[in-house]
Amino acid sequence: MFTSLLVACSSEKQESSTPKAESATLQNDSTDTAKKSTAEAQAVEQATFTDLEGNAVDIAEFEGKVVLIDFWETWCKPCLASFPTMQQLMDDYPEQFVVLAVTPGFLNTKEDASEFSGENDYDFVYLFDENKLHQKLNVQGIPFKVFVDAEGNFIEMSMGSRGPEGDYKHAKEIIEKHS
């Protein structure tokens, strides 16, 4: 199953035949969604992680590149299946794109991520989510991808995969539009 959330999502404009009470509820839901989206965007744009050596890494350090915050863990087969595609994008857009492979700590530890990074030849920036961005974004499952533009602005977040070709095409469009 694939779910996608976009910043500033809201209910569609209702027909004028909608009863006033229902319309007010829809408008309040839309406002709540916009507030939630704004809070999520701020959390992403101000995110700080911990690298495998214990150093703080701020999302702002990657300004100038489109950033993919890719929440993953070593046991997640769909997460691992997307890694070659994300590496290919980094190879194709070395000055425009970076992958932050962020372990939320569901079952993995920093040591698990460190072992994986040592055994695999991906150029990702491996990080641990000690500041719980995944909770602020209400991440319910992985893979969970969050895109940030080259100026540090939240673009979108989504759970799941479109498959290798779909993931490549979608990320390529974001990179070319936002770098």
Score class of each variant (00 low, 15 high):
Val125Tyr: 00
Phe144Arg: 04
Pro19Met: 08
Ala21Leu: 14
Lys177His: 06
Val125Gln: 12
Phe128Gly: 00
Asn55Trp: 04
Glu111Asn: 10
Pro143Gln: 08
Ser82Pro: 08
Thr38Lys: 15
Thr25Ile: 14
Leu26Pro: 04
Ala47Asp: 04
Glu73Phe: 07
Glu176Thr: 10
Tyr122Leu: 07
Pro84Phe: 00
Gln140Val: 08
Gly152Trp: 02
Asp92Ser: 11
His170Phe: 04
Lys77Asn: 11
Ala81Pro: 04
Met1Pro: 14
Leu133Met: 07
Gln42Met: 11
Tyr93Gly: 05
Asn120His: 15
Phe116Ile: 07
Leu100Asn: 08
Ile69Pro: 01
Ala34Gln: 13
Glu115His: 05
Lys110Val: 09
Glu22Thr: 13
Asn108Gln: 03
Asp29Gln: 15
Lys172His: 02
Ile175Tyr: 02
Pro84Thr: 10
Ile175Cys: 02
Asp91Pro: 08
Tyr93Trp: 01
Thr25Asp: 13
Thr48Asn: 10
Met90Cys: 08
Trp75Ser: 09
Lys132Gly: 02
Leu26Glu: 13
Asn131Leu: 02
Glu111Ile: 06
Pro94Trp: 06
Glu40Thr: 12
Asp149Glu: 04
Trp72Val: 08
Ser30Val: 11
Ser17Gly: 08
Glu15Met: 12
Trp75Gln: 06
Thr18Trp: 00
Lys20Asn: 11
Glu53Phe: 02
Pro104Leu: 03
Asn153His: 14
Asn131Val: 00
Thr31Gly: 09
Thr109Glu: 03
Tyr126Gly: 02
Lys145Ala: 13
Phe71Glu: 01
Lys77Ala: 15
Gly141Phe: 05
Ser17Arg: 12
Phe147Ile: 05
Glu40Cys: 06
Ala81Lys: 13
Leu100Phe: 04
Leu26Asp: 12
Glu156Cys: 08
Thr74Cys: 05
Phe124Val: 09
Asn131Met: 06
Asp91Tyr: 01
Gly118Trp: 04
Phe154Asp: 03
Phe71Lys: 05
Val146Ile: 14
Ser10Gly: 15
Gln135Ser: 09
Pro104Gly: 02
Leu52Glu: 08
Gln88Leu: 10
Thr38Ser: 14
Val98Met: 04
Glu12Lys: 14
Glu119Thr: 09
